[in-house]
Simulated assay, not measured.
Amino acid sequence: MELNERKLNILKAIVKDYIETAEAVGSRTISKKHDLGVSAATIRNEMADLEELGYLIQPHTSAGRVPSEKGYKLYVDLLMSQNELRDDEKLLIEQCLEKNVNHIKDLIHETSKLLSQLTNYTTVAVTKSLVNQSVIKHIQLVGMGDNKILLIVVTDKGDIKNANLLTNINLDQSKLNLISDNLTNKLSGKSITELDNRLIAFIKYEISEYSAFIDELVNALNFNISEEDLSVSLNGATNIFSYPEFNDIIKAKSFLNMLEKKETITSMVRSKGIQKDNINIIIGSDNDCELAKDCSIVTATYNIDKDLVGRISFIGPTRMDYARIYSIVNYMSLLFNKK
């Protein structure tokens, strides 16, 4: 049994109708709404074949059919076409990008917020957050006992980096506070890349009693700052309640609990799915996260000069309007590449 053009057209019609209505689709509905040039009886036979092939599911004996995960995957991979956005939607996206064009991180996160409102899906923005691209605002040292010290660096962007230090010098918290204040006075307003040998030598001269400790601190700073961190923002978490698939309170709570964990979110958006241009589409059970098996995730990746600057992901039921999301992120990519 082969997937001929007629079967593909019927599958495409069923997927689109089910996305729109969340109700099982029958042959009569397809016959009336879509000009396929065949009778309802023929459509019914083709639907039975599509079910046998695993692309459709019949929830109840007398009901119509709904797409299976396999059906959604075929639709996304082969049948989905890009939709035209409305002029007002284009304008909103353009204004959001223009407003934040000088701050790439803000641009990604603010656009994610707007896209959640436009689509009524949950969106997640993930950006790189490298402190050496930021300016130091405050430094704090906290004694943790057994000569262990926690170094905390706060930047002007609101990012917080920390590192653990081990020292042979016995320093109580009052002394650590004095060192913290001194370092903040000397380094506030400077980026990590400005920590050259002359500046470090000056700081060690100013607090010569703890010069050996300053070497350990700077080494920890440079090591820690070189590590990539991620800034994650979540928008429209409760949008999922708009979809009948999540009327079950237990399922809805599980979804919200999943979104509370940064590690889970970043793992989800990095999972591999169907790749189309700069867009990755993960459907249902392909999600690595067990709690996301009833969801689909569409992730757009944005780069500047081939360097990854961020991702925006849409999370919704498997009955997600993939074509609309695809159109939105493609339009955003078009604008983004002009910046």
Rank of each mutant, 00 (worst) to 15 (best):
Asn303Thr: 12
Glu290Leu: 11
Glu69Val: 14
Tyr121Pro: 09
Leu259Phe: 03
Asn278Ile: 09
Ser129His: 11
Leu53Thr: 05
Tyr18Asn: 01
Asp172His: 03
Glu69Phe: 07
Ile152Leu: 09
Cys96Ile: 14
Thr167Tyr: 00
Leu91Asp: 11
Leu165Ser: 14
Ile136Val: 12
Asp321Lys: 13
Thr42Asn: 10
Gln275Pro: 01
Thr299Val: 14
Thr122Ala: 01
Ala24Pro: 10
Gln140Tyr: 08
Ala125Gly: 15
Ala63Lys: 11
Ala63Cys: 03
Glu227Tyr: 10
Ala41Ser: 14
Ile328Asn: 03
Leu56Asp: 10
Lys293Glu: 12
Lys73Arg: 10
Met320Lys: 05
Phe223Tyr: 11
Ile304Cys: 00
Asp305Ser: 04
Leu3Val: 07
Gln95Gly: 02
Leu56Pro: 11
Ile19Phe: 01
Ala40Gln: 10
Tyr72Arg: 08
Asn337Ser: 11
Ala125Asn: 06
Tyr205Cys: 02
Asn100Thr: 07
Ser327Asn: 05
Leu107Phe: 05
Val298Cys: 05
Lys272Val: 14
Leu199Ile: 11
Leu97Arg: 07
Lys99Asn: 08
Ile274Ala: 09
Asn239Ser: 06
Ile282Asn: 05
Ser267Leu: 07
Ala48Cys: 02
Ser233His: 10
Gly26Asn: 12
Ala13Trp: 09
Pro59Thr: 05
Leu171Asp: 06
Gly71Ile: 05
Ala220Trp: 00
Val131Trp: 12
Asp181Val: 13
Ile108Trp: 04
Gly54Glu: 07
Lys253Ala: 08
Ser27Trp: 04
Ala48Lys: 14
Lys105Ala: 14
Ile93His: 12
Ala212Pro: 13
His109Phe: 07
Asn224Ser: 15
Gly236Tyr: 00
Asn162Leu: 12
Glu89Pro: 01
Tyr55Arg: 02
Pro67Ile: 03
Ser68Tyr: 13
